[in-house]
Design a protein around this nucleic acid. Structure first.
Lengths: 346, 346
DNA sequence: CTGAAAGCGCTAACAG
DNA sequence: CTGTTAGCGCTTTCAG
C-alpha cells in the first residue's frame, strides 16, 4: 500500500503553496484562473484526493449528522431516513445511522454527544424511551432536532405534524361513515407515550364534536405500534361482548395487524369493521384491502429536519428551539370506504 | 462554548505523560493499577472524552464502514441494515448509510473510495447498477463485501444464498401443488440482472426435474422488484388468453403487488392463483393472505458481511475473495397452501 | 512501565 | 492574490 498523495505534494508540483491548493480544492474564489488551472492539473496528474480525516480535525467538525430511530425496519422510519439521506447529501453531509430499540440509555447517550466528541456535528432523533424531561437535559452544545410528537423545550427544534387534528379528522371520518362503536388501538398513558396521548385526544375530540360518546373500554393500549401489537389488540377487542364496528389505529402497522386478525376471524373490512391507520406507508396502499390513513408529508419532514440541524450546526449562537409543523392529509381507501373508489394505488 | 478537555490536560492533572493517558483510555494493558486509577480519576474529574477526529487522523482510519443499498425503503434492505448496524456496533464500528437508487455512477464512485479518502474503512455494497465487470474494477485497497447474487471476483467477498436452489424449491412447491401453468415475475435478461437470471434458472430447473414444460410467455420481466412492478406484471398475465394458475415472484414486494392485482380482478389466492415470493419480509407474513416465501437467514448474512469487511480492514494483505452462502428455507403460508396451516405468523 | 517528541494532512490566521 | 506557519488532539516510535 503506497502512501497517498498529500496536499503538499500537489503544491510542490504546481509550484504554489499548500494554502493555495487548499483554496482551489475547496473553491475559495481567491485564486487566479491561471493558478487554478495549474493546481487542477497537478491534482489530476497525481490523482490527489483530500484526506477527510485531516480536514475534519483541522476544522473541528466531522461533516456528519447522526440519524437515530428506534427501529430501522419500521417502514415509516425507513421512508423518512431515505428522505433525510437525500437531503443531507445535497448539503455535503454524510449520515450516520443508529438504531436504539427504544433504549432510554442509548438515546440519552446520543443526546450527550455519544461516547466521544465530534463524531457527528448534529443529531436528528426520533425518541421513544425518553420523555420531555429527559430530552430537555441534552447537551446544549449539540445541535438537536427531534422528530415526532414531542414539544420543543426551547433548546432544540421539533418537526412533526399536528397529531391531535389529524387524529380527530381520522376519527370524524369513521363517525361520518355512520359507525357508532369506535375502538382506538395504541394508547400509551405514560410519560414516554406523548405521541399516543395526542392521538387519543384527537379521538376524543372527534366524538365530542359529533356528539357521540366515547366507549372507554374500546381504547386499547399497546406497548409499540407494530403489527403484532395491532393483531393482539384486535383479537382482544373481538373477544369483547360488544366488539367495535370501526377502529382507529395509531400506525399503519397496527392497522395491518388488526386487519390480519379480523381476516383470521372471518370478518370483512370494512363491511363488518372499518379500519383506518396512520403514517401512510407503502404497505398500506397495497394491502388487501388498501388501508385508509393519515398521510404526513414525509418528504417535507425529512428536508426540514436536515435544514434545521444544519442551520444549528452553522450558527455561532444556538437559535431558539422551534416548533415546525408539516402538513398532513387524510387518504381514504377501501378499508373504510369499501370498493367505491378507484382501487389502483399511486 | 468553552474549549474541550484534551488528553494533555488530563495527563497534567494526573501527573503522567500523555502517552500513559492514551494507554489507559485505550486499554493497552501496560499500566500499573495505581497509575491507571490516578488517570481514571483525572478523566472523571475533567470530564474528558477523546476526540475521535484526532484519533482518526493519527490512526489513519475512520472506524466507520459504509453500507450501500439501492433503496432504503425496501423492507428487505432495511431488515438487513438493522442487522448490520447491530453487528458493527458490537465491534465498535459506526455505520454510514448511503442509498444509490441503483445509479451505476454512484455505485462506481463508492467502490473507488468515495470522493475523499478515509471517510470509511470498508464497504458493504448491494449493487444494482453495476455488473460483474464493473465490480471487479473496484479500488483494490478498499475492503469490499458484496451482497446479493453476484459472484466474487477474487478481490472481494460475496455473501448471499443459493438462489438457483432456493428458486427451484419454490417452483417445485408450486408444481407439487398440482399447478400446471406457472408464471415467473421478475426476470431481467441483461448484465446487471444476474440475481434475476439465477432465479429464472431455478424456475426452469424445477420444471425439468418434475418433467413439466415451461410456459415461456408466462415469464415476465420487470425493471425492479417492487410492488408496482408486481401488480403491473400480474395484470399483464391476467390479460393473456390463458392466464397462469400459480406465480413465482422474485421478491415478496412483487408478490404483494401481484396479490393486489389479483384481488382487484376478483380472483382468489390461492384458489384461483397460488403465489409465492422471495425474501421473507415482515409484510408478507401479515399480508392477506399471508405470503409463502423463500426465507434467507438475514441475521447471518448481516453478521457475516460485517465480519468479513472488518477482517479485510484488519488484514495487512488482502485475503482472497470468498464466496459465502447463508442458508435459506421455504416458508409456506396461505398464499400457496390455503387455510390448512395455522394462520398466526411468528 | 513511562516520558519526550515527532508526526498524521489539512486549515486558517497572519503577513506580504 | 499567495506564501509562511502554527496548530487541530491524538497515537506511536524511540529511549530510558
Amino acid at each position: 500500500m503506497h502512501r497517498d498523495v498529500t496536499l503538499r505534494e500537489v503544491a510542490q508540483l504546481a509550484g504554489v503553496s499548500s494554502r493555495t491548493v487548499s483554496n482551489v480544492v475547496n473553491g475559495y474564489a481567491n485564486v487566479t484562473d491561471h493558478t487554478r488551472a495549474r493546481v487542477m492539473q497537478a491534482v489530476e496528474e497525481l490523482g490527489y484526493r483530500p484526506n477527510v480525516l485531516a480536514r475534519n480535525l483541522a476544522q473541528g467538525r466531522s461533516g456528519q449528522i447522526a440519524v437515530v430511530v428506534p427501529y430501522l425496519d419500521t417502514p415509516y422510519f425507513s421512508e423518512l431516513l431515505q428522505g433525510i439521506i437525500r437531503a443531507a447529501r445535497v448539503q455535503g453531509y454524510n449520515v450516520l445511522v443508529d438504531q436504539t430499540d427504544g433504549d432510554p440509555d442509548h438515546e440519552r447517550m446520543l443526546i450527550h454527544h455519544g461516547r466521544s466528541r465530534l463524531l457527528f456535528d448534529g443529531v436528528i432523533l426520533s425518541p421513544l424511551g425518553l420523555d420531555q424531561q429527559a430530552l430537555a437535559d441534552h447537551d446544549p452544545r449539540l445541535p438537536l432536532v427531534v422528530l415526532g410528537e414531542r414539544v420543543s423545550q426551547g433548546t432544540f427544534d421539533h418537526v412533526g405534524i399536528d397529531d391531535v387534528t389529524a387524529s380527530r379528522q381520522a376519527t370524524e371520518h369513521l363517525l361520518d361513515l355512520g359507525r357508532t362503536r369506535l375502538a382506538a388501538i395504541g394508547d400509551q398513558p405514560y410519560p414516554t407515550g406523548e405521541a399516543a396521548q395526542l392521538r387519543t385526544r384527537g379521538f376524543r375530540e372527534a366524538h365530542q364534536r359529533r356528539g357521540a360518546r366515547v366507549h372507554e373500554d374500546l381504547i386499547v393500549r399497546t406497548p409499540r405500534f407494530n403489527r403484532a401489537d395491532g393483531a393482539g389488540a384486535m383479537r382482544h377487542l373481538l373477544d369483547l361482548p360488544e366488539p367495535p364496528d370501526a377502529v382507529f389505529c395509531y400506525s399503519d402497522l397496527v392497522a395491518l395487524g388488526a386487519i390480519h386478525a379480523l381476516t383470521e376471524r372471518g370478518l370483512r373490512v370494512p363491511e363488518d369493521v372499518a379500519v383506518i391507520g396512520y403514517d401512510d406507508i407503502e404497505d398500506g396502499a397495497y394491502a388487501n384491502p388498501p388501508v385508509s390513513t393519515v398521510s404526513p408529508d414525509k418528504e417535507l419532514i425529512a428536508t426540514t429536519a436536515v435544514e434545521r440541524v444544519l442551520l444549528r450546526i452553522a450558527s455561532r449562537t444556538p437559535p431558539p428551539g422551534m416548533e415546525l409543523r408539516a402538513p398532513h392529509r387524510l387518504v381514504l381507501r377501501h378499508s373504510t370506504i369499501g370498493r367505491v373508489a378507484s382501487s389502483r394505488p399511486r
